[in-house]
Simulated assay, not measured.
Amino acid sequence: MIYRMWHGRTPRSKADEYARFLERKAVPDYRSVPGNLSVAVLRRDDGDTTHFLTVTYWESEDCVRRFAGDDVLKAKYYPEDQDYLLEFEPLVQHYAVIVKDDAV
C-alpha cells in the first residue's frame, strides 16, 4: 500500500476558496480512481501564506498510475490551480505503508 503526499501553497487570501475547490473537484477525482482507499486534505495557515497537504492512500503503485500516469512521482495539477498556487512543485512523495492501525 502507498501513501502519496502532495504539498502546495496559496496566498492566505485565496485559501478558503482553494479549500472549497479541492473539496469540490480534487477529492472526487481521487476517489473516482479504483484502488484509492482514502483522501485527506490538511491545511496550515502561516502568516500571509497557507499550506495544503493532500495525502492519498492507495492499494498499490499500479492504482496510483491510473490516477497520475506513468510517472507516478510527478505532481498532477488541475487547470484551476494556476488561479491559486504560488508555485508548482514538480514531484510528490510516496511512502510504502509498513504498519497501519485504523483505531483512531
Rank of each mutant, 00 (worst) to 15 (best):
Met1Glu: 05
Ile2Gly: 00
Ile2Arg: 14
Ile2Lys: 15
Ile2His: 05
Tyr3Leu: 12
Arg4Trp: 01
His7Met: 12
Gly8Gln: 13
Arg9Ser: 04
Arg9Ile: 14
Thr10Leu: 07
Pro11Lys: 15
Arg12Met: 13
Lys14Trp: 09
Asp16Glu: 15
Glu17Thr: 15
Tyr18Ala: 10
Ala19Ser: 14
Leu22Met: 15
Glu23Met: 14
Pro28Ser: 06
Tyr30Ile: 04
Val33Gln: 07
Pro34Asp: 02
Gly35Arg: 00
Gly35His: 03
Asn36Gln: 07
Asn36Phe: 06
Leu37Phe: 01
Leu37Pro: 06
Leu37Trp: 00
Ser38Gln: 02
Ser38Thr: 03
Val39His: 02
Val39Ala: 02
Val41Ile: 15
Arg44Ser: 14
Asp48Gly: 13
His51Pro: 02
His51Met: 03
Thr56Met: 04
Glu61Leu: 10
Asp62Arg: 12
Cys63Pro: 01
Val64Gly: 01
Arg65Ala: 11
Arg66Gln: 14
Gly69Ala: 09
Val72Gln: 04
Ala75Lys: 00
Lys76Phe: 08
Tyr77Ala: 12
Tyr77Thr: 01
Asp81Glu: 14
Tyr84Glu: 13
Tyr84Leu: 11
Leu86Trp: 05
Glu87Gly: 01
Glu87Tyr: 13
Phe88Asn: 00
Glu89Gln: 14
Leu91Ala: 08
His94Ala: 00
Tyr95Ile: 03
Ala96Cys: 04
Ala96Gln: 07
Val97Asp: 04
